[in-house]
Design a protein around this nucleic acid. Structure first.
Length: 943
DNA sequence: TGCGTCACG
DNA sequence: GACGTACGTGACGCAC
């Protein structure tokens, strides 16, 4: 086929693919010999995705992957410092480059590179030829240097974000259309590629200038007319450098590319060389996916996925567990009687492990009824035991159990010995859920593994750890979505109404997937060196949290209801006043309407619109307006809206919503903690969130009066004092801070004294407040801007404080630099206890880099604090055994207990000892950990 | 469903 | 005068 109209050329920026793959994935190695292949694996996955995703209307007729030949190009002759700033290639990436070429050829895709030219030039040349021939072009890349090519039949596609970049996107990014992009780039320069540009001119200013003068040459020739002296000088003095920059950034669309467009026609991969390559790389999942797509048998690969003691067993198994087995829903068994269940139990005992999953009527484990159980022992083989399915459709038969189900009690009685057998490993995905369901039926699952927590230990920061996502990512298989069975929204049904035949496919598949994930993760856990984290900080927390959640906390609905009424009255009063001041009624709860009232109707100056075009009406904005008495009425209005908002928040989120969360059976509120939700190792509390119950204002704190102890009981709270600052003092090794903590001195006052030279006994609250803000700022990866805003002081002043701080405590800056360098090098940071938090964006450019940098600085501190309280919680059941006390809640640095009246002091002694000693023996901190305590009839008193 | 807002550590 | 900026969460109401 001759390339022409109707043809569609896809040009893949191969180098960009490699770098993205390298940074997006953990450092994977080939299992047989340790060769680093993470980038190759990612590259192959992305390439395969491109080849399979877009077949059809928008799919390519022609395709090529384009690489950079070497770092030396004609641009080095134009400007000797071009790309001189580029960091060294990571050690483990270099050997992967030739492999990506090999991979491209193995997929039977044209692989282009040319000495003396960058990949971008080849892309520019081919794109030009293709559009001249009447065809269309999609460039698979998000590199801004390619954006000059967009338009006239050329678009770009960001494969990571799954987003097309067209003319509008380019204008959004550069402020000018594609044909003017080089002009802007020439002016702004590029620190990454070391394109000089004009000093002090960035993209924003460059776009402004180009839009005003039309193009770069006109601008340079009329530079004298520029009003701002600095800009004028920058352009006049650097005109030559700017012209050099233009030659650097302009892509060469006339590169002597020898391949014809016709040679790039899409070809089906040849099975044999492709399979050979993939199995040589030991990409098990991708090999299987490709084999499935090509409808051929996957090659048998070396078995690396089983633990040693199971490997032997598998060796004489005709179908070893790790050979990729296709997912086949028809092979799943529906277990309807005791004989069938006994066969499964025998298979489980034989294997020594089983993947388990439960199906229930609700996500709320405390109210959920068990509907069925699925099991899997060997990949591809799984069963579902329906236990609580009900007749659908018939209104009168609506509550009757469907036929052909074992009695629930009989099935559980048969499974209990297996689920509690110390020699049989139970494997689950989010086992806390199933653990609670079984616990409510008198079964305590042990021992177990949890694939969600394995993923969390290995991949925190890279992606979420839900089963469907993990399956797609690591097994290349998209499981049946629960939505397809239950529907969504108002018409959603519960699982007991799902026809058993459909339930079998869905539920058994979940057990199958869980088992396969376990097999994939088990060896990797060790390779990633997070086995200890998984075994000491994640897995043992499951039963502890399950017990806490099941215990719940008593909440008095009468207290809440009275407060709701009072809040409603107060809101109505405020609303009337607000409407009165505004001169018209409007929805006070609508930021949009409020903004229009304040800034348009009432004419308050300085309204700022956000990205949606609405005025910002956040608390800080309203506070400024309320404090500005010159404004008159708008100040009154803002002050009342602030009051209204506070009350409205308390009512809707707390006093109203909490009442609905009281379990009618227990009279208590049962939150759910997600172990793998927060990247840093913190827990997150949901349904309801009991980690954000108000405390900072007097009115809000009264909500805690509704959280009460049972009759004859007290609530006891213990919280770590300044735990994050103590960890900072330790990890950054700051002698003055460490000594202050040892001496039990007020740490913020000490900081203030050191910074401002004020003796401790002359400290004023204001000076101390500033030091406190800086101490916290450090933990968050401080910036002058952020501190200035927090303290409401000029930015220069805030920056001066920070400079002084770093002078007084130079170790802090060293810690920050060290941490960021570590993150850039390894792609993750680590806590004292070995927890890894990945930082995939740390090498990004633009504002993202700032976020990633600060997150990387904060994560080891926040994460270590999270590790410490996890360790305390895991030990707590043993530490308080025998005391009439229950651990109820965790709020990041606080543990809340319910304890019988007479045992309060014993509980405090035992819990304090456990919390203060929680780092031992894994880590010896140079600073003491201190836990303060309080007690009372309700949470407000105890805190 | 995304955004703005605000509750907590 | 480049950009936009404290870290980590979850729930609510509005507007689409």
């Amino acid at each position: 086929m001759t390339f022409g109209k109707g043809c569609h050329l896809h040009l893949i920026d191969g180098s960009a693919f490699i770098f993205r793959a390298y940074h997006a994935l953990p450092p994977l190695t080939r299992k047989s010999d340790g060769l680093p292949i993470g980038a190759v694996a990612g590259f192959c996955n992305m390439l395969w995705g491109q080849l399979t995703q877009n077949r059809g209307r928008t799919g390519p007729t022609h395709i090529a992957v384009v690489f950079d030949y070497s770092s030396k190009t004609f641009r080095d002759d134009i400007y000797d410092k071009y790309k001189a700033n580029r960091p060294e290639l990571p050690e483990d990436l270099r050997p992967q480059f030739p492999l990506t070429r090999e991979a491209t050829r193995a997929f039977n895709v044209a692989c282009l590179e040319m000495e003396g030219y960058e990949a971008d030039d080849i892309i520019a040349t081919l794109a030009r030829r293709a559009t001249e021939a009447g065809g269309e072009v999609t460039i698979i890349s998000s590199d801004k240097d390619l954006m000059q090519l967009v338009g006239n039949g050329v678009v770009m596609f960001d494969a990571m974000k799954n987003r097309t970049i067209d003319r509008d996107e380019v204008i959004e990014k550069f402020g000018v259309p594609p044909e003017r992009v080089v002009d802007v780039q020439s002016l702004a320069g590029d620190s990454v590629d070391n394109v000089p540009g004009a000093p002090g001119i960035g993209i924003k200013t460059a776009a402004l200038l180009i839009n005003e003068y039309g193009d770069l040459e006109t601008l340079l020739s009329r530079a004298e007319e520029i009003k701002q002296p600095k800009r004028r000088a920058a352009l006049i003095e650097n005109a030559d450098l700017i012209r050099v920059s233009k030659r650097l950034v302009t892509l060469d669309a006339q590169a002597p590319v020898t391949e014809s467009l016709d040679a790039l026609e899409v070809r089906d991969p040849e099975a044999e060389p492709l399979m050979a390559f993939l199995s040589q790389m030991e990409f098990r999942t991708l090999t299987r996916r490709v084999a499935e797509a090509l409808k051929i048998e996957p090659p048998v690969m070396a078995d690396n996925s089983l633990t040693p003691d199971h490997a032997e067993k598998a060796a004489d198994d005709p179908a070893p567990a790790s050979t990729p087995v296709p997912f086949s829903h028809g092979d799943y068994e529906c277990v309807r009687d005791r004989a069938a269940l006994d066969r499964w139990i025998a298979a489980i005992r034989e294997a020594g492990h089983v993947a388990v999953d439960t199906e229930t009527t609700s996500l709320d484990e405390m109210r959920a009824a068990l509907v069925g159980i699925s099991l899997s022992v060997v990949p591809g083989q799984a069963c579902y035991i329906p236990l609580g399915h009900r007749q659908g459709g018939d209104l009168f038969a609506g509550d009757a159990l469907s036929d052909g189900q074992m009695p629930l009690d009989e099935a559980l009685a048969a499974l209990k010995p297996v689920l509690e057998d110390a020699s049989i490993l139970k494997i689950g995905q989010n086992m806390k859920y199933d653990w609670k369901i079984f616990a409510r039926h008198g079964i305590r699952i042990a021992p177990f593994d949890d694939t969600m927590l394995m993923s969390y230990a290995m991949h925190a920061g890279l992606h979420n750890h839900g089963m469907d996502g993990l399956s797609e990512r690591y097994l290349g298989h998209k499981p049946i979505e629960i939505k397809s069975l239950l529907g969504s929204g108002k018409s959603a049904i519960t699982f007991d109404r799902v026809p058993v035949d459909d339930a079998v496919k869905y539920a058994a598949e979940d057990a199958d997937v869980t088992l396969r994930l376990w097999q994939a993760f088990k060896p990797d856990l060790h390779r990633a060196a997070v086995t200890t984290v998984y075994e000491t900080l994640e897995r043992p927390l499951v039963p502890v949290l399950a017990e806490m959640e099941m215990a719940g906390i008593r909440v008095d609905p009468n207290v809440l209801s009275r407060m709701s009424n009072a809040f409603a009255q107060k809101m109505a009063g405020l609303e009337a006043e607000i409407h009165e001041i505004a001169g018209q009624p409007f929805n006070v709860g609508s930021p949009k309407q409020l903004g229009e009232i304040l800034f348009d109707a009432m004419g308050v100056p300085g309204g700022e619109k956000g990205k949606t075009g609405a005025y910002s009406t956040g608390a800080d904005v309203l506070e400024d307006i309320a404090a500005n008495t010159d404004l008159g009425r708008p100040a009154d209005l803002a002050a009342r809206v602030l009051d209204w908002r506070q009350v409205s928040k308390l009512k809707s989120t707390y006093t109203d919503a909490l009442q609905g969360h009281i379990n009618p059976d227990t009279g208590r509120v049962h939150t759910s903690y997600s172990i793998a939700g927060a990247n840093t190792g913190r827990l997150a509390s949901t349904d309801p969130n009991l980690q954000n119950i108000p405390v900072r204002t007097e009115e809000g704190r009264r909500i805690r009066e509704a959280f009460v102890a049972g009759p004859g009981m007290r609530l006891v709270s213990l919280d770590y004092s300044q735990i994050e600052l103590r960890i900072l003092a330790h990890v950054a090794d700051i002698p003055a801070l460490k000594q202050a903590f040892r001496d039990g001195i007020d740490i913020h006052a000490m900081t203030a004294s050191q910074m401002f030279g004020v003796p401790l006994d002359e400290m004023t609250p204001e000076v101390r407040r500033r030091a406190k803000a800086i101490n916290f700022g450090v933990i968050y990866g401080i910036s002058g801007f952020g501190l200035a805003r927090n303290l409401r002081i000029p930015r220069a002043e805030a920056q001066a404080f920070i400079d002084t701080y770093f002078e007084r405590f130079p170790g802090i800056r060293e810690y920050m630099d060290r941490t960021v360098a570590f993150a850039k090098d390894k792609g993750f940071v680590q806590t004292l206890f070995g927890r890894k938090i990945h930082t995939p964006e740390i090498n990004a450019k633009g504002p993202t880099a700032g976020f990633a940098r600060r997150a990387a600085i904060n994560a080891p501190i926040q994460g270590a604090a999270a590790d410490i309280i996890r360790r305390a919680m895991i030990r707590m059941p043993d530490a308080i055994r025998g005391l009439p006390a229950t651990m109820l809640l965790q709020v990041h640095d606080e543990l809340l207990f319910e304890v019988e009246d007479g045992a309060v002091e014993d509980l405090i002694t035992a819990a304090r000892k456990t919390m203060e000693g929680a780092a031992h023996p894994a880590v010896h901190l140079d600073v003491p950990l201190i836990a303060d305590s309080g007690q009372g009839a309700n949470w407000a008193e105890a805190h």
